[in-house]
Amino acid sequence: MNMNEPLPLVSKLAKRNYLRKYGMLTAFLLICLVLSLLTPGFFSIQNTTIILRQVSINGILAIGVTFVIISGGIDLSLGSVVAFTGVVAALFAHPGEYPLIIALGMAILAGLAIGGVNGLAVTRGKVAPFIVTLGMMTIARGLALLASDGRPVTGLSDSFNYIGGGSVLGVPIPVLIFGAIILLSSFILNKTRLGRYLYAVGGNEKAAYASGIRVNSVKVLSYMICSGLAAIAGIVLASRITTGQPNAGLAYELDAIAAVVIGGTSLSGGIGSIGGTVLGVLLIGVINNGLDLLNVSSYYQQIIKGAIIIAAALIDRKK
């Protein structure tokens, strides 16, 4: 396969992607403008740092699920995987017991294992991704409660807590991790064979299979990337709140999937980009932050958030 010669179809899709991206970018800039005018504290380096730190967990999750959605799947187990891997990390992060790398490694291994099971059930078991990951949502939550005995795992080491709380040259570490994941996953999706295979499998599975792509392996990998990233989000969350919380991450998958869809990734697979997802994540983050700054009642907040998500998507489709 030669990657330097885009097919006509691909370039057409790319054009449509550009329109989608710019539609959303306009909406995003408009919302930022309105919020800057309404709230004095909004447009500042300090608040930008705060927003970036707040979105980093949802951002890491959204990028993970972008891989799965592009390949034509869905992952509803994200929030529970965040809780489970956060608990696993916390269990190995008590001061003076294990080196930090063990805590991180065990959590990521747990995430990869869950992704592997999801992927195998979808490919070998031929069960709909919606069902598999819905089941896994409950299983992972149960595992989190089992591993933690239903109580938050507290008393974690300073080095572990530094991941979520510390910063390097004024940039919070979660933001640096988020940034690194953006770069790495854009590279994988745009520049590697795996990336092209993911789009191909999501776009037309039969054609992908006919052209010799090992569809099942590609799909399993997408679930493993997704859950592996969820484990990183789990580590960041546990570290940020300095506890492994078995109840953490409730409904996180919904915010992640919302960000992906706002970013123009098609839920039917084959279309989508990391840039779009990042924009979706930022949009949700800016709305959350702005409405808090304006002290909008929490009842209205829910309505406004939902309406803005739908409106943003509408502007996008009109273009």
Binding site: T39, G41, S44, Q46, I50, Q54, N288, N289, D292, L293
Partner: peptide, 9 residues
Amino acid sequence: SLMENWIQS
């Protein structure tokens, strides 16, 4: 997150 936003405003 809420507290950070309140500190900001």
